[in-house]
Every structure is written in C-alpha cells, then in structure tokens.
Nucleic acid binder design. Structure first.
Lengths: 233, 233
DNA sequence: CGCGGCGTTGATCTCTGTCAATACTTGTGG
DNA sequence: CCACAAGTATTGACAGAGATCAACGCCGCG
C-alpha cells in the first residue's frame, strides 16, 4: 500500500517543518535527525488513505504539507470527522503507546507530503530520555484538551453557534471587523462541525443577521465582538 | 477549600484500590508508596467540588470510592458533562504535564473518598524512570480513545441509539437477555449523553419497542443482539 | 403533613436531517 | 472553443427529532 506513494528526497524546507512540529520542536536536534534517518517524505494524492482505523500501527507521520482528515467509522458504517490536521502536526502518535492499532483513520484531503517515523524508534528514544517522554505527555494533554473542547461545543452549542465559533477561531483579532478565508471546503467544515452541508449553507444565510457575510471562500465579519456575544447567548 | 474536607487514615482496602488503579497498577510498589507518603484520603460530600475548571493544578486524585462528574463550562455558562469517573480511576492527571490548569472541573456525585497525589512528585518519578512515563502515555492514549469514541457517538448516533449504546456498554454479555442496574441517576445519564432528562424519559418509552424495559434503576434487555442491531441501523 | 428532588407526560415550537431540484465551478475531451 | 460530466454549493419542501415550558405523580425526609 505505502509503496504506491511517490517517495521523494528530504528538502531543506521539510527539515524546517519537522523542527517546528511538536513535540520535535523541543527535542534535541541530534535525536530528531536519528528519528528521521532512513525515512523519506512521501506524497499522498488527494483521496488516498494514510492509515485505516484498526490497522496495525507501526508509524507516526509528520505532515510536511497538505491537509489530512481524521475520521472514525461508526458501527453503522458512517464516517465521522473527528479532526482535521494541517502541516506542522503529527498524526497517529496515540497508537504507538497502547494497543498498536490506530484508533482513528487518516485520509488525504489535499495532496500532501508526509514523513513517516517509526513508532518503535520514538519509543526507544523516550525510554532513553525521560524528558522527551514528558514532552510527549504534554502533547497528549493538549490533544486531550482539544477533544474536550470539541465535546463541549457539540453538546453545548447549536449549529449556528458552532459555525460562529468556528469562524471566531479563524479570526486573528478579538474586536473590530475581520476577514478570513475558509481553510477548506464547506462540506468538510460541515461534517467536522457535526451538521449536514445543507444545514451549514442555511446557517451561513442566517448568520448575515449578526454581521457575517460569506462569498466563495471569503468570510467577512463586521464585528467580532458581536459574533462572540452571539455564541454566548 | 480542601481543608473543609474530612481527612481520614489510609485503610488496607484503600491500598488495594490504589494498586488496582492505572497507571499505578503497573508501577513498582515502592514508588507508589513514596507517591502517597504523607497523603491522607479525604471524604468529599455529595455536591462538593474537587477542583474547578481553570484552577491551578497541583494534584491528581485517586478515586478510592464514590462517583465523580467531569464537567466543562461553556462560554454561555452552561455545564456540559464530559465524563463520569468511578473508583479505581484517577482524575486531573492531564493538567500536570502542560499548563498546570485543570482543563475540566470535577464535582462529587456520590460522597467519595479521594486520595490526592502531588503532581510534582509524579513528574519527578517519571523523570527518573522512563518506563513509568511510557505507562502514563499508554493511559493518555486510552483517554484519547475514549474521548474519540464519545465524539463518534454524539456525531454519529441519534438520541435513541446513544441510550441503547449506553445500556449495551453496561451489559456483561453480547447475546441473550440481560438485566443491569443504572449506575447513576437518570438525569445525569441524560446530560452525559447530551440530551435532556425529558427526552431521555421519552426514549426509555420508545425503547420498549426493541425489548428494553426500565423500572426504577433496573434495566431489562430481552435480546442484547437485537438491541445491538438497533444501534447499527 | 408538607416539602423538595427526581421522574414522567403533554403540548408546542425550533432545529436539523432528508429528499429533491437547481445553479455554479472545474476539468476534460472532442 | 465549446459541450459535457462530475464535484460542490445553494435552495425549497417536508418530516422527524429534540428542546422548552408546564403540570403532575412519586418517594424520601424533616
């Protein structure tokens, strides 16, 4: 399966991404170099699968470039989007400490460059240097927090508020007006927020009432504070 | 705040619980003893708060006995139940590796005995023995998996299916008939499942159609397999 | 006995999913 | 260069799920 994906040589820019990716940003350089020794970046085409839920987990992947969808297949076969991962993040790391099966699946949204790293190699380093394990634990904690926040939003906010909240997180500012680009297709945003594309589209219309205009991929927020208040109703 | 709670001496049975609690079940006994040295179990009355969301995190707690509700307060002030913790589990551990603020709150559902453990002491041990850090990472992974499953259920199943699924998880068997007790109040189950108590009550009525009878706290499932199929529709 | 917490039930309304039809965009091949 | 197809987005009509408001019954407790 993995052999199908085009292998490439490691570039200088790839190394910069690796060094900016948690937890490797806080690892000693020599250790990071040893972890990626012998590994080559691979290009995964849009629509391809990085790993499947339940598959034996041997590697984690650094997303050098692109966009990955993290999914979970329910008992009835439908797919739930539990996360969306950009470059400068790693995926699949939770599997290597436990049952060695990926608890989620990863699918490519936009053609991506991924750098695989052997889970066993990472574990070996963590055993040697406890401080690295603690840094990995810090990453696990932030993952935990992110999932808790997601649960909070699904259980505590309705569709309109979740969409508004999603836009707010894209905003660099807390007050005034703001214009941002949608990071990926509306369809995917909808599924990530736990609503259908149709409902998402309707909500965009309704949000005009609180000063949100959406054209193509461009979102214009008249008053960030006002939208923020809307979520708190 | 903590001083209000009644301190007690460590009992033999407490020690057994500690030794059965992850990750201490796989820690060397001497280390576990040093971690709880100087700590005394405390009784928290029903309704009291163990720690609040956002509070500075200095300790983790082993639940020796009782029931704890893990909550998250939304922007609009409403409370979302993100987890329910029985005895033989620890709470608050994710905070000590990162920003040292509890990302969630913990409230006592049934009068509980908790054994506090200093986060700094745990971290110190993890630094000394890397294998312990890896075991803690394994715990973090299982936490991750549990949260992902919860997101999967909320996004992928409707109310009836979530209730049915909740009952199925209480069942010791996969086939045949089964009778189980609700582990806590219906109200709390409802909020944990992300629905209102009223809706939960109505769903109990509807579930009679698939062979589920509920009297008081007793749930009788005619055919576990049948209920299982119902969730997969 | 009265009170309060918990649970149930009814009526109503809002939100959201589903089915379906219609643009709009993009890329492909003739 | 245009026609066509496929993927993406919007909109309408409708039905069902679930929230909300409200009333009532049940039970334990002071």
């Amino acid at each position: 399966m993995a052999l199908r994906h085009q292998k490439q040589r490691m570039r200088e820019e790839d190394w910069l991404v690796v060094r900016a990716t948690e937890p490797f940003s806080v690892f000693p350089e020599s250790i990071v170099r040893s972890l990626i020794a012998g590994q080559t970046p691979r290009v995964f085409e849009k629509g391809s699968t990085v790993f499947k839920q339940g598959e034996a987990a041997t590697s984690i992947f650094i997303v050098l470039k692109g966009l990955i969808k993290i999914t979970r297949v329910t008992a009835k076969g439908t797919e739930v989007v539990v996360g969306i991962v950009h470059s400068c993040e790693i995926i699949g790391e939770s599997a290597i400490f436990l049952d060695r099966q990926y608890p989620v699946g990863a699918e490519v949204i936009r053609t991506s460059r991924l750098l695989p790293i052997e889970g066993a190699a990472v574990v070996a380093q963590l055993k040697k240097k406890p401080i690295l394990a603690l840094q990995m634990l810090a990453l696990a904690s932030s993952r935990f927090g992110a999932l808790v926040e997601q649960i909070e939003r699904i259980k505590g906010l309705d569709g309109q508020q979740r969409v508004a909240d999603f836009f707010l997180q894209l905003c660099p500012c807390r007050t005034g007006s703001c214009s941002v680009e949608l990071p990926f297709e509306k369809c995917l945003i909808a599924y990530f927020l736990g609503i259908t594309p149709q409902t998402f589209s309707r909500i965009l219309t309704h949000l005009r009432a609180v000063g949100v205009k959406v054209e193509r991929e461009k979102v214009t927020i008249e008053d960030v504070q006002r939208l923020s208040d809307f979520v708190r109703v």
